[in-house]
Design a binder for these strands. Structure first.
Length: 678
RNA sequence: GCCCGGGUAGCUCAGACGGCAGAGCAGCUCACUCGUAAUGAGCAGGUCAGGAGUUCGAUUCUCCUCUCGGGCUCCA
């Protein structure tokens, strides 16, 4: 038998018989390795250990210590899930089951439209555990396309995956002639089409848990049948699984919906309707502070403040095109019978602010000297989001956009976009957010308005600034709207879901539809470019993300109550109230909880409210004008002079460069009443 | 919108072959006045989400609606 030669990661060579597999090589190296190895990486590609090694290959062995293994472990676990389900529900069929972040899922269709229940998950888990214990080897084989079709003859959803499987990627399209489809067999002849690789046998699978069952459209399309999807999580060790479950629990504890109730920030009364929030006093303070700081920064950045009504006659949204494209997403119109003859006029709640700002631009002739003209509004808009997508404050039907529209010349567009993204990111960071990435959506393939040069210029300007930020930049080729490229800032919530926050959107379209013009230095009329942008996205969503980001423990400048004052006994009430007044005088938010409960209980409650400072005052403090300071996350300090404490508060809050107290900074008023800088 | 699972006191949850509805916390009252993470006792609190049906009788069974959760799809 002729020999082959392979190279190991340390550069050494090994001679093996032709046809030797990764497992053979591992065994040749040592029994410990042979036992531990799960996947062979051959020339950088993951392979089954049972696959013969090509001559001259570079081979690296992956064990459970290598994070790359997780993907294969999860894929193999999904395979076992399918095995269990098909066995337990005769007549069931299956579609796809890939590894995903933290786990895997598999889509099934049960006979007679049956569905999985939560109880079924436990039963399935049990069967999977048995399969894993019986240590069934995964055996790979390949078939031609027609044979493969026959092999999966009982499973009508499988052929859709065959092209992708043979092509080795997820792209659609016909499988090239002559391509083989790979299958894996284990146990009593359970077979699944899969491009692999799998771990050597089910016994090598680690710790898993089935998490939930959900409906999912076949191939992700609403027009396809809905399948039953089972989600699971899988890890190489019991500890990793436990750690993951623990992370989920911790994430749930910082869920903004839960904290919204616990901290008395906001609620969604059923009486009002889905997706319509009310903000309670404490949430109201946080929101006001968020907005005030935003206003201040916008004023400094040369924005002008405008206001527009919540409803408008339909023709405005006909002109803008919103009714043409997004009528589904708008609340149905109010029909007003204006002349008593049944000739009605429809009024719509606005889903967007842009047409209003456009009308402000168009209210008179504009000169190039006024550009860029930046109009800002906290605009309340209403969108009839589908019931199934509503989610806490992050997806609502009534929301407030921190919306601005910038009208600029073509020449200034790139500069304006550049400074805009800087502005956006700087403001987000001021609120303490830094876990985000950028997504750049470029010109769609099909129809698009605007010239190639305009698209190119706008896209390049966005890309340049995005890259200059040193942030992760995800390209979304062709993902832009037909009217212009877009860059968005995506933030993660406590559970790892990503939410779009800021967007900057170039619009070549609306200026045309509304025939916007300005007079240039040449005396001729020109069409401006319009930029839509929102930083918070919506105030509500941003609020929700902030709550989760801070787990409800807002930084002192944003905290609804900055100090809770606890008199040790009734005798200290007067002192406590005087202290509270003093703090409020200095511009801070304090509350007094009198001694109706024990001190321990009141401290516990205040801590539960995540107040930055709990101040305990007793005899010593009354005598010497001091406080006992119990800071959030710190240790207790007695006998701190009140002036000293106020100075510390001031230093902490002012260092954030934010308003010291609720209320609009005088600079906002000054800036807003003077012409915008350009 | 679609699939699955929920909705019992303000909150977290028990409960009931179909026969007067339960706890803890929160609230109120009283006592306690306390120096750093739950003092004690008592009181009050519910059309068991809403509507219809079956039934002598429905919070419990059936249907519809609303609403919440987890996903899918969508997000100007």
């Amino acid at each position: 038998m002729s020999a082959i030669s392979v190279t190991l990661p340390d550069g050494s060579q090994r001679e093996l018989d032709e046809g030797s597999t990764g497992a053979d090589l591992a065994a040749d190296i040592g029994s410990g390795l042979a036992k531990a190895v799960l996947i062979a990486e051959v020339n950088g590609e993951p392979r089954d250990l049972s696959a013969p090694l090509p001559d001259g290959a570079t081979v690296k062995f992956l064990t459970k210590r290598d994070p790359e293994v997780l993907e294969h472990l999860r894929h193999s676990t999904a395979h076992v899930l399918a095995q269990a389900v098909l066995e337990m529900w005769p007549g069931a069929t299956f579609a796809g089951g890939p590894p995903i972040e933290d786990g895997f899922y598999y889509d099934f269709e049960l006979p007679d439209g049956a569905t999985f229940s939560e109880d079924d998950l436990a039963r399935i888990e049990k069967r999977m555990t048995q399969i894993i214990k019986s240590n069934q080897p995964f055996e790979r084989y390949e078939l031609d396309l027609d044979e493969a079709m026959a092999e999966m003859g009982d499973h009508p959803y499988k052929p859709a995956f065959m092209s992708a499987a043979s092509a080795g990627d997820d792209s659609d399209g016909e499988a090239p002639a002559g391509e083989k489809i790979s299958f894996y067999r284990n146990g009593d002849g359970f077979v699944d089409m899969c491009r692999g690789p799998h771990l050597p046998s089910t016994g090598k699978l680690g710790w898993f848990k089935l998490m939930r069952v959900a409906g999912a459209y076949f191939r992700g399309s609403e027009s396809n049948p809905m399948l039953q999807r089972i989600y699971g999580t899988a890890w190489t060790s019991k500890d990793d699984l436990a750690a993951h479950l623990d992370r989920l629990e911790q994430a749930a504890a910082r869920d903004h919906r839960r904290l919204g109730a616990e901290l008395d920030l906001f609620s969604f009364p059923d009486e009002i309707g889905s997706g319509l929030a009310v903000f309670h006093p404490k949430g109201g303070i946080v929101r006001m502070l968020m907005e005030d700081y935003s206003r201040k920064r916008h004023a400094e950045a040369g924005y002008e403040f405008v206001n527009s009504p919540h409803i408008t006659k339909e023709n405005l949204f006909q002109t803008s095109g919103h009714l043409e494209w997004f009528a589904e997403g708008m609340f149905p119109p109010m029909q007003l019978d204006l002349d008593g003859d049944g000739n009605s006029t429809d009024y719509y709640l606005k889903p967007m602010n842009c047409p209003f700002h456009i009308l402000i631009f168009r209210a008179r002739m504009r000169s190039y000297r006024e550009l860029p003209l930046r109009m800002f509004e906290f605009g309340a808009v209403y969108r009839y989001e589908k019931s199934g997508v509503l989610h806490g404050l992050t997806r609502v039907r009534g929301l407030t956009m921190d919306d601005a529209h910038i009208f600029t010349t073509k020449e200034n567009m790139a500069d304006e976009l550049g400074s805009l993204l800087d502005f956006v990111l700087s403001l987000l960071r001021d609120y303490g957010l830094d876990d985000f990435y950028l997504e750049l959506s470029t010109r769609p393939e099909e129809k698009a308005v605007g010239t190639d040069a305009e698209w190119e210029e706008a896209t390049e300007a966005l890309r340049k600034v995005a890259e200059g930020q040193g942030l992760e930049l995800v390209m979304d080729p062709g993902g832009g709207a037909f009217y212009g490229p877009k860059i968005s800032v995506q933030a993660r919530d406590a559970i790892g879901r990503t939410w779009q926050m800021s967007t900057i959107q170039v619009d070549f379209q609306l200026p045309q539809r509304f025939e916007l013009e300005y007079v240039g230095s040449d005396g001729e009329r020109h069409r401006p470019i319009m930029i839509h942008r929102a930083l918070f996205g919506s105030v509500e969503r941003f609020f929700g993300v902030l709550v989760e980001h801070y787990a409800g423990a807002f930084p002192t400048w944003l905290a609804p109550v900055q100090a809770t004052i606890l008199p040790v006994a009734d005798a200290h009430d007067d002192y406590a109230h005087a202290l509270s007044a003093r703090l409020e005088q200095a511009g801070y938010r304090a509350e007094v909880i009198e001694a109706n409960d024990t001190l321990g209980k009141r401290i516990r409650n205040a801590k539960g409210q995540k107040v930055p400072y709990v101040l305990v005052v007793g005899d010593d403090d009354v005598a010497s004008d001091t406080v006992g300071v119990n800071p959030r996350g710190g240790s207790v300090e007695r006998d701190v002079a009140v002036d000293e404490f106020i100075a510390r508060l001031a230093a902490e809050v002012d260092s954030k460069g934010v308003p010291e107290a609720p209320g609009v900074d005088q600079r906002v008023i000054d800036a807003a009443s003077s012409p915008a800088s350009s």
